[in-house]
Write a protein that binds this DNA or RNA. Structure first.
Length: 473
RNA sequence: GUCCCCUUCGUUCAGUGGUCAGGACUCAGGAUUUUCAUUCCUGCAACAGGGGUUCGAAUCCCCUAGGGGAUACCA
């Protein structure tokens, strides 16, 4: 049977990086196995629905290059892929459960449940439904349903343990006594996650459920549902969580958690994928830079790590820098320009400056700041730099350089080395003593990108002007 | 509280009974470079603790501690 995985987010906000990693793993596994990857929107909680998040989600997936074979906008005979449009399917399913005695209507009010929970907590008992409505006869239940609001609960076994195998965790056992009679259908007629998820995964023929670790404790409920329906359960893999530096669940309080935040900050989509893929799994080789194709080829679901991983910005930054440096020039220039002020974008020489910065960037956001050395007015040379300017050899370099300039119509980076070579020969000055005076004269600083780029960016006239300014009569 | 999961350098990932416990990021030092950055080299740095099992444990078992997750008519 061919593999089918799914990513099933709920549209309640931004796309969390952990959520994206889940999507990525599902995608990698499906692609590697030559299977199908589907996207399903779990919008069964009308209270939590946030407008625009579906669009946002689709956009994020697209930006990061994760394509799905079926899902919103790509319907097939297994759809629709919005749970809110599948309500009839869930109702039919839960009716079957009801008729077969696997589920029951519960008429308990929210108030009673609240009190129940309070008293249980006071007695240090685990809060759980006490089963008041569990033994109602179908007849009675149907009668009361006429004029009383109700939910439908799953009749969970009372004794024994639920043992199952997880692709990441191995064998796991949970006592049935720990499992509450889960609500399957809310009083508003919408299903809960547990019901909708199981029903959809079955009808969409999902073979592997790859999702976050927070779902591990509800596996018994799901397995019981499959059992009641008489369906085979998919294989499961519960992924370790992404963590804050203090090892709590990665949250907004301690930094950016939304994919779009990182996109906005100038991170390269490929780098984001590469980095996230390596949080919780690693091919175990020296190289850590992987294209999507390489990730697909190398991915091994059996080698997913069990422990949670701290989201390490330092490494992301490094990796992003790698992607920027390895980017082909055309794409680099195109992307880099989007980080410029509109007026700078019209600057005909800006590419020269951008090219010089390519090795100096970890993220594109650093561009405006690092561009300063090209576009800004040079700072007053500090004492150390001033000393360099005052050297007799510096003066010689200046005049020789100026003389070179006389012969040129324009100043090109490509010619710069040759020019300097001639200046060196004529002046007899070389090495640092040759270059530093020019650097200081041109930029006011002792450090910066390659001088040739700076010179070309400035242009002949401006370069000459700056050097002349430091020439002593 | 209860249940479940987890525990190798600061971070991340290798290592599934015999390894000098390895790689990557960070950091430090060095080389290259006109400087910075890049690149390259070197180095610092870990098996949570305690019991077993075994000739031999990071690797298997138990306990403890710590961390995380779940305990909703949210997902």
């Amino acid at each position: 049977m061919s593999v089918v995985t799914r990513f099933a987010p709920s549209p309640t906000g931004f796309v969390h990086v952990g959520s994206h990693r889940t999507a990525l793993y599902n995608y990698l596994f499906a692609r590697q196995q030559g299977g199908k990857f589907i996207l399903r929107i779990e919008d069964t909680d009308r209270k939590r629905y946030v407008k625009g998040t579906v669009e946002n989600l689709l956009f994020s997936l697209q930006r990061l290059g994760i394509s799905y074979d079926a899902g919103p906008g790509k319907e097939d005979d297994k759809g629709p892929y919005f749970q809110s449009r599948r309500i009839d399917i869930y109702r039919k399913a839960v009716e079957q459960l009801l008729q077969q005695g696997h589920a029951y209507r519960c008429f308990c009010t929210a108030q009673r449940l609240e009190e129940l929970r309070k008293s249980q907590t006071a007695q240090k008992l685990p809060p759980a439904y006490d089963g008041l409505c569990r033994e109602l006869t179908l007849e009675e239940s149907e009668q009361r349903a006429q004029n009383t609001p109700f939910v439908i609960r799953l009749k969970v076994p009372k004794e024994g343990t639920c043992a199952f195998h997880d692709l990441v965790r191995g064998n796991v056992q949970i006592a049935w006594s720990q499992i509450d009679d889960q609500v399957l259908m809310k009083s508003d007629g919408f299903p809960t996650y547990h019901l909708a998820n199981v029903v959809d995964d079955h009808f969409m023929e999902v073979t592997h459920i790859i999702r976050g670790e927070e779902w591990l404790p509800s596996v018994p409920k799901h397995l019981h549902l499959y059992h009641c329906f008489g369906w085979d359960a998919p294989k499961m893999a519960h992924l370790p969580l992404l963590l804050n530096p203090d090892r709590s669940k990665l949250s907004k309080r301690q930094g950016d958690v939304a994919i779009e935040d990182y996109l906005k900050k100038g991170y390269v989509p490929e780098a984001l994928n590469n980095f996230l893929a390596l949080m919780g799994w690693n091919p175990g080789e020296k190289n850590e830079i992987y294209s999507m194709e390489e990730l697909i080829a190398a991915f091994d679901i059996n080698k997913i790590v069990k422990a949670g991983a701290v989201f390490d910005l330092q490494k992301l930054n490094w990796m992003n820098g790698q992607y920027i440096r390895n980017m082909d020039t055309a794409r680099y220039l195109k992307e880099a320009k989007t980080w410029l002020h509109p007026e700078r974008q019209r600057d005909s020489r800006i590419e020269t400056a951008l090219l010089a910065l390519k090795t100096a960037l970890n993220t594109f956001t650093e561009i405006p700041e690092k561009l300063g050395i090209f576009t800004g007015t040079p700072p007053e040379a500090n004492e150390e730099a001033q000393n360099i300017l005052n050297e007799a050899s510096a003066q010689q370099v200046f005049s020789e350089f100026l003389r070179e300039m006389d012969a040129m119509t324009e100043l090109r980076e490509a010619d710069f080395k040759a020019i300097m070579k001639r200046v060196q020969e004529r002046s007899g000055v070389k090495g640092k003593e040759l270059w530093m005076p020019l650097r200081v004269a041109l930029t006011g600083a002792m450090h910066g990108p390659e001088l040739g780029y700076i010179a070309e960016y400035l242009g002949k006239a401006e370069a000459v002007r700056r050097i002349t300014a430091h020439l002593k009569k």
